[in-house]
Nucleic acid binder design. Sequence first.
DNA 1: TAGATTGTTAATCGATTAACAATC
DNA 2: TAGATTGTTAATCGATTAACAATC
Lengths: 235, 235
Amino acid sequence: MKDRSAEIGAPGPTLRRLALYHHILVRLRQGGREVVSCTRIGQELRLDPTQVRKDIEATGIVGKARIGYDMEPLIASIEEFLGWDNVTEAFLVGAGALGTALMGYEGFQASRLSIVAAFDKDPEKVGRSVHGKEILPLSKFQDLARRMNVHMGIVTVPAASAQEVAAMMVQGGIRAIWNFSPIRLETPEEVIVEDVRLSSSLALLSGRLTRRLRKEREEGAIDDDGNEAGSKAGL
Amino acid sequence: MKDRSAEIGAPGPTLRRLALYHHILVRLRQGGREVVSCTRIGQELRLDPTQVRKDIEATGIVGKARIGYDMEPLIASIEEFLGWDNVTEAFLVGAGALGTALMGYEGFQASRLSIVAAFDKDPEKVGRSVHGKEILPLSKFQDLARRMNVHMGIVTVPAASAQEVAAMMVQGGIRAIWNFSPIRLETPEEVIVEDVRLSSSLALLSGRLTRRLRKEREEGAIDDDGNEAGSKAGL
DNA sequence: TAGATTGTTAATCGATTAACAATC
DNA sequence: TAGATTGTTAATCGATTAACAATC
């Protein structure tokens, strides 16, 4: 009865891990490997083999007991499940540092993401070309998105304009938004939003680092004449 | 007895959300607001107020029943908890598209992250300057990191060299690594690693988008002479 | 055959959400 | 005072991990 509507097909953590498996499998295939077990994949990523199995099961493929999975069908199955079997075309809005980087990023080959156009509201930027693609004015977004049947939008504008850009994307028929801004986008439920929150990621890292360093400083400061009192037996 | 060692102070989700709260609070403060309740923060982010309260509680601050929290101490408390009360200096390795973008990224002001130097192994890049900072050769990393007491490293090199770079960082005394490569870094347990997996994030988005579009196409294809049979009452 | 691995069900774990007394 | 909100404990939920039969 409950339909969160975000949960299509598989839970988020599974989708995310499948991308990691894919990366490893492609590497193993290059090394000439033709079969692979969940145990093996789990070793590479330090994940529980049962978890790997469940994730792979979600893609619908069946393996062979005692052997594992045939490499080619497994990779194909993951690619189909992630939509990486065909090119996904996307429009990017916000040709700043981050947007420009994404346009030139080499890491999207596996996913076959193709950023086919970039838009910016800054007249200074419009007309310039980034990684071989001309930056277009925002006014052309909606018409082009519909005509070219582009369903994915990438938001790399500052927080202040992100909501406005998202609304425009929805108007242009965009169905999935990759959001690099730090705000929560309000969108109709038929639109899928995935947030990349760099500041949250950094918060985790800096929060833990700070606490660790503070703690060590405190421990080291018990004795203040150079002896590091709090440290465990030196390794 | 169990010490996962990653769980210092607060669970990951809490740290991540605190960054979101911080962003909203700063905005509300700019608007002149002097107190704020968890209910209010929750509304902005569509989060359960109880969850917001628990997260805030983790920072150690106490509020006032019926009122909420005083804005200034609350922001200060979050900043202290995340280590955002002081500048964190970081070294970045890999001056490609992504690395360059991070160096010029405007979104790090709140966290007071300062990327003080960038390194690259490509002699072509070494010596050039990016956003006002000269790119240095990898060979200088360890010595500089120790001399300047830099504890955070940012990895924006391709997968193939990421492990090698991480090892070098550890050797240079780096204690926290922000990893943008798609591989799992092997590091001693005193090093904190936070992965930003763009391909996993994209997998989630493209996987769901693909399944949704495929499903709609199937539904729409029941009747193939132009009537969109599967669609719900048009809005 | 022996044993590693799949497929699947059950138990555990941790995070989220609900409930409610205390309070200003 | 009334009622919104904090602080805190209990219940729920979903994801991870463990257990184990089937199998090649």
